[in-house]
Simulated scan of single mutants.
Amino acid sequence: MIKLINALQAWRTPEFENILKHEIQNLDAELLPLQAGLSQSSYVSDAAISVVILSVTETSDLIRAKTGIFYAGIIAGSCCADDPTPVCEQTEYCEVQFDIDKRTAETKVFLLQDQ
């Protein structure tokens, strides 16, 4: 379960977006739907991700952040005819929504398919 505690504590402050970005970028990438968001490669690389906050809205129960995530995908073994094992990284992008519960900071994560 993802808990974005620092982002929740920073809600309605000028630092909110920076704290949210930092917290997302420091999550284990396996907790994010990056593999499902691949469009040009086969596997998610271990490289760092970069987060852009696209919009933030609020309901009575949650904070909803729509983000763009840039990350690297790899196509293993397809970059050179002479060497079947090189790893070529491709830049990938997907949009991910984070729904942060205002009481618990428990966060649900959704890949947004219509980008």
Rank of each mutant, 00 (worst) to 15 (best):
G37M: 09
V56M: 08
R64V: 15
I74K: 13
I5L: 13
L8W: 03
A48C: 00
I19K: 03
E23H: 06
F70L: 09
T57N: 10
L4P: 00
T67E: 08
S42E: 15
E15W: 04
S55A: 15
I63P: 06
C80T: 13
F70A: 05
V52C: 05
E58V: 07
L4I: 09
N26I: 08
N18Y: 08
W11R: 12
L27W: 01
G68T: 01
S78L: 13
Q40G: 02
E15A: 13
V52Y: 06
V87P: 05
V51E: 06
D82H: 11
I75P: 00
E30D: 15
V52N: 10
L54P: 01
S60R: 02
S60G: 08
G68K: 13
S41G: 01
I53Q: 03
G37N: 07
S45G: 07
H22F: 15
L20W: 02
I24M: 09
D83W: 09
A47M: 10
W11T: 01
A72R: 11
T67Y: 05
T57P: 01
A7D: 07
T59L: 08
V52M: 09
I74S: 08
S55C: 01
S45K: 01
D61M: 03
A10I: 14
V87Q: 11
D61K: 11
I69H: 08
L34S: 03
Q40H: 12
A81Y: 03
L62I: 13
I74R: 09
